[in-house]
Design a protein around this nucleic acid. Structure first.
Length: 582
RNA sequence: GCCAAAAUAGCUCAGCGGUAGAGCAGCGCACUCGUAAUGCGCAGGUCGUGGGUUCAAUUCCCACUUUUGGCUCCA
């Protein structure tokens, strides 16, 4: 066993043991509490309780104190093996434990762990004694509601989340990481950098892009369109609403009616706002007969869709009710299927890397329970996705049952600057839509055959992708994405004319630049530009004016004085072209 | 949708039974300045919405809306 494995195992034991200590503390305070489960999780642990009342911050403080006290007592964790009957009588007043006991298969060992004042049904393992725990290396973080066994129909329990480590230093590092996450929060940065807003009075979960946010979005979308044309795609534009026939045929009304916006009645027909673009692209396909000679079609659209997400699920840009998919549908012959999927995979990786994401993992999702279509075709489709992954040499994990109702899929997840994983790309096989919409092509032999169809989104939702980018770069976008690339700052009003000249020159070369000619002092202007995370600041005064040069202050505080204007422009253009970060 | 917490000026926040306060931003005036905030002044709020308790509610209670942390969900 490697050292890191040993450490992981030890942390797991520490966290799990801590959860028992917390349960003991909670039971001291609420003797009638029902206890559920308390596992170790990433960075800590939680325990679920059924409590007589809601917990306050003061309660958490008291639980913390009691836990420290228990830890100091140096109590041994003793394992006790008992029979099912004994277990039942021991936990006679603990309804959740009884349920757990009943679920243990006959013949399997039932073990308890006791640390003196508290005994829990538990398969372990634990540390030997509470003295192995560090009372200064844990922190109760928050409380949350959680359904018993994660089922919506079950009662809601109170979950206490905590983080726990073997020593106070690791705890401190983790708490710092939490602070970092908070600083990077796209909702906070979106406000500070004036990028976007949401308005309760105008509808929750609907995004308003401000000029500075729109600049970034345009940079993303322009790049996206160029690359799609380069990669053999065509653009289409389709409507935002369509008659119910579309959604009945596609199956969306059957599967997702409750999360579609309510229909509008027009001319005695129901029109739905689109939750997906596919039926529209299919309408384009069905507009005429197609020969195998024309295929494949790769049709892309930045299509804005609307889905009624549950109120409690909304979250900034990450989970919204109206968003823009960077969607495309590939219509091809069965022969072309595999190479098309391979090509999409390659394209996808190229796009993600262009935005600065290097750490990418692939996931293959197979047939879910709630699905349509013949299982044999599911198996064949899954196999072809697998082949594509393997021929790309991508390592992948399998998400059993994670596919869409109409087909298996490949998802790509990236790791951001602080190691968090986000799902962006999705490539979905669809052998269902072509059936439902009766989509065919005429093959070499003159026979009409079923078309194959792939849905894919590389960035996912533009809104969400923007949120991920914002957090990844903590607001300091690489220049090619920055809403403002250069801020021109005259040392005083006297140099406004020279600053204006330089500005004109920058704009002539297509750079996004602005002149701060406000009545602020130079220091304040630098501070403002710095706070807006503008990558380049040009400080212009007497010296620069004399030599037709600029003094560059970079976002990171570094400086370069007296650079010729043209040299500066050339270097920025190169950074922009290469999509480099500063 | 469920559990819990929150909602006060454009933003960040203080106040808390006697109908509101700061900093920043905004506006005005002065300063003309060399690498992260020049000074002074002015203006700005039916304290999320609707009910209730009270002589009196921003403050206490109830409902609703929205937000936050989770749970569930995520084509």
């Amino acid at each position: 066993m490697s050292n890191t494995q040993k450490q992981d195992e030890r942390l797991l034991k520490v966290r799990h043991s801590m959860s028992h200590v917390m349960a003991e503390a909670v039971l001291q305070m609420f003797p009638t509490a029902q206890i559920a489960i308390g596992p170790a999780i990433d960075n800590g642990f939680y325990y679920d309780f059924d409590l007589p009342r809601a917990l306050t911050q003061e309660d958490l403080d008291e639980i913390t104190e009691r836990m420290k006290h228990i830890i100091k007592e140096d109590k041994e964790f003793k394992k006790i093996v008992i029979s099912k009957e004994e277990a039942r009588s021991m936990f006679a007043d603990q309804v959740y434990k009884l349920e757990l006991i009943d679920a243990i298969p006959e013949g399997e060992e039932i073990s308890l762990y006791n640390q003196g004042g508290f005994t829990d049904l538990c398969r372990g393992p634990h540390v030997a004694s509470t003295k192995e725990l560090n009372g200064e290396a844990f922190k109760l973080l928050n409380t949350a509601g959680a359904y018993w066994r994660g089922k919506e129909t079950n009662p809601m329990l109170t979950r206490i989340y905590a983080t726990a480590w073997t020593n106070p230093k690791d705890l401190r590092l983790y708490l710092q990481k939490l602070e970092d996450i908070e600083k990077r929060d796209h909702r906070k940065l979106g406000k500070e950098l004036d990028l976007f807003s949401l308005h309760e009075e105008a509808g929750p979960g609907l995004v308003y892009w401000h000029p500075r946010g729109a600049r970034i979005r345009m940079a993303i979308e322009n790049f996206w369109r160029e690359e799609h044309y380069k990669h053999g795609y065509e653009m289409v534009f389709t409507p935002h609403v369509g008659k119910s026939w579309l959604w009945e045929t596609s199956g969306h009304l059957g599967f997702y009616k409750e999360s579609m916006y309510s229909p509008m009645e027009m001319d005695k027909a129901d029109y739905y706002t689109k939750p997906m673009n596919c039926p529209f692209h299919i309408m384009v396909y069905r507009n005429s007969k197609h020969s195998y000679r024309e295929l494949p079609f790769r049709w892309a659209e930045l299509g804005t869709v609307y889905r009624y997400e549950k109120a409690g699920a909304l979250h900034g840009l990450m989970r919204v009710r109206g968003f823009t998919q960077d969607d495309a549908h590939i219509f091809c012959t069965p022969d072309q299927m595999e190479s098309e999927i391979e090509e999409v995979l390659r394209f996808s990786l190229y796009m993600l890397r262009s935005f600065g994401f290097e750490d990418i993992n692939a996931y293959l999702s197979t047939k879910p329970e709630k699905s349509v279509g013949d299982p044999e075709r599911w198996a064949a489709a899954t196999e072809s996705l697998k082949k594509a992954l393997e021929s790309e040499g991508l390592a992948y994990e399998i998400d059993e049952g994670g596919g869409a109702f109409y087909g298996p899929k490949i998802d790509l997840k990236i790791k951001d600057a602080i190691g968090r994983e986000w799902q962006l790309s999705t490539i979905q096989f669809d052998f269902n839509m072509s059936e439902r919409f009766n989509m065919t092509f005429v093959d070499k032999d003159g026979a009409e055959k079923r078309i194959y169809m792939v849905h894919r989104a590389l960035l996912g939702s533009i809104e969400r992708f923007f949120g991920v980018l914002l957090e990844h770069y903590a607001g300091a976008f690489p220049p090619w994405l920055s809403p403002e690339q250069v801020c021109v700052i005259p040392v005083s009003e006297i140099f406004n004319d020279y600053a204006q000249e330089v500005l004109v020159e920058l704009k002539k070369h297509g750079l996004r630049a602005y002149l701060d000619d406000s009545s602020d002092r130079m220091n304040a202007k630098i501070r403002n530009a710095q706070n807006m995370k503008v990558p380049y600041m040009l400080i212009l005064g007497e010296r620069e004016m004399q030599s037709n040069s600029v003094s560059i202050r970079y976002r990171n505080g570094k400086q370069e004085n007296g650079a010729p204007v043209n040299d500066f422009i050339a270097s920025v253009l190169e950074v922009v072209k290469d999509k480099k970060q500063l």
